[in-house]
Design a protein around this nucleic acid. Sequence first.
DNA 1: TTTAACCTTTGCGTTTTATGCAAAACTATT
DNA 2: AATAGTTTTGCATAAAACGCAAAGGTTAAA
Lengths: 301, 301
Amino acid sequence: MLKLTRIFIKVVEFGSFSKAAKVLNMAPSSVTRCIDKLESELGITLLKRSTRQLLLTDKGTIFLNGSNKLVADSDYLLMSLSNQNMEPEGSLRISTFESFGRLNICPLIPEFLARYPKINIEIELDNKMVDLGGENIDLAIRIGIPEDSSLKSRKLLSNHTCICASPGYLSKHDNIEQPQDLSSHNCLLLNQQRQRTYWYLNNSQRNAKVHVSGNLKSKGGTPLLEAALQGLGVVQLANWMVTDFVKRGDLVVCLKDWDSFLNESSSGNVYVIYKHSPYPNPNIRLFIDYLIDKTHNQKIK
Amino acid sequence: MLKLTRIFIKVVEFGSFSKAAKVLNMAPSSVTRCIDKLESELGITLLKRSTRQLLLTDKGTIFLNGSNKLVADSDYLLMSLSNQNMEPEGSLRISTFESFGRLNICPLIPEFLARYPKINIEIELDNKMVDLGGENIDLAIRIGIPEDSSLKSRKLLSNHTCICASPGYLSKHDNIEQPQDLSSHNCLLLNQQRQRTYWYLNNSQRNAKVHVSGNLKSKGGTPLLEAALQGLGVVQLANWMVTDFVKRGDLVVCLKDWDSFLNESSSGNVYVIYKHSPYPNPNIRLFIDYLIDKTHNQKIK
DNA sequence: TTTAACCTTTGCGTTTTATGCAAAACTATT
DNA sequence: AATAGTTTTGCATAAAACGCAAAGGTTAAA
């Protein structure tokens, strides 16, 4: 019955048999069968449904509440037993924005998996706004603390950015000596939902807010970096993305005396975000501790 | 997993695969298989066992505690849902002492089952001391309040007894005019664990305790009744057992001015006894209420 | 209003799991 | 040492679970 209950919870969570089936790696027909069976065992209707709509019945709500607790208690019991006996196993689904994931997270994974060979990691390098509540993701790595109070976060590292362009670009365009100069340059922008994009710069004397624009936008930093290297324009990217290119002279840092930010309200720091749970998956904790250990002791600073 | 857990709980409760199998209507091999499977799923050993001995491991104890709660919560959830929707179903196992059960409980069962056709009753007419804790019995009907504090009880009826014998017996023996006279009669005794048996008689003026003996003992009253009817001796039996025979003249009540008791400390009243549970089986409550309704309004008084 | 897309349900066949019988293995009691 | 009773194991059968493919139904888009 617990298995059917877990399936039921997933169906309600996703509002769809098909979506739940995907997440559970089951055929939709099997999910349908499981819900039918559960309803038969309970002798009640849990869900009113048509091909496009699911509604929880009153009884279904009662059962959902009760079974959430039951499943949580069961998981806790299992975890408390297995924590004492078994090496960590199971899966972790991680979402991280593309460039950070590729450059900073992926290289750390093999050592983690060597240490815990029974854990599987499924990583998704994706710049879309991930909804931990709505998707089957255990933890996400994102810039800025989430506003959703049901999520917890741990700071991984400070994400200082800097503004830079290629020497070729700079030699062909007006000098960038103060923040306002940026508004007359071709600034390559990380995609944002807002119509107008501003870069924020601070120094010991004042804060600047500059309206910037350009002819290339991207959700991820990689295409912008590539374009900047080829002299297309000015970028504001994370230090860890550009450090090597700056050292090689392929990119030049502008406005060195200023601290730059992509968002007004956000420090731009990198956080690992995960859902609050009374009985959290211990693998999440393992991985977070591992990341923090690495980021606080290795080259990513 | 819940099913395996329930089986595990039964095995621990009975301390034996074989006994648990009997109670669960399963083959012992299936029980073994289930425990094996549970241990495999949990990755721990729950029970250390040989062919004659079961010991719970430390992990097994933890799991037992956790799963008792889990199963209770699950049952409660199921009950709270089914109470709202389904006519009562399931089974009831009842133990009652033989004569009372046959004469007073059995005649009431058909009407109860007609009212609740999805309930099954398994009745055991047995005079042995039943251990509700150790046996798979939902409720028992016995004389006297149980000393086990984990059991709950409801009074069904007062169990007045009377002392009587057949006219034939009385005509061949000395008159019984006061309690002490009983000690020189052949008293047919309900079996008791004590070596010596006393009958207790009270009237408005004094209490009498009479040592009695005879050449017939029985756990149940029926053989004694039969023997008394055939003139073998004197019996002290419940009113409801003898009323019809007294009316017919086949038995004569002796010492009519005295109230008689089989035990010093017990009123001799009949109680229905059941195990305390945070989430009791509603069928138990249904049946108890039905019995009380019947006993308080019908011929058994 | 019609069509297409997508979801749930159902028929069916295959795979997996559960179950019990019977016998083997083991241990405690007599 | 033999017996009785319990657990375990091999094996065959029955039951349940599962997924494929198609049908049925509903909603959104054209």
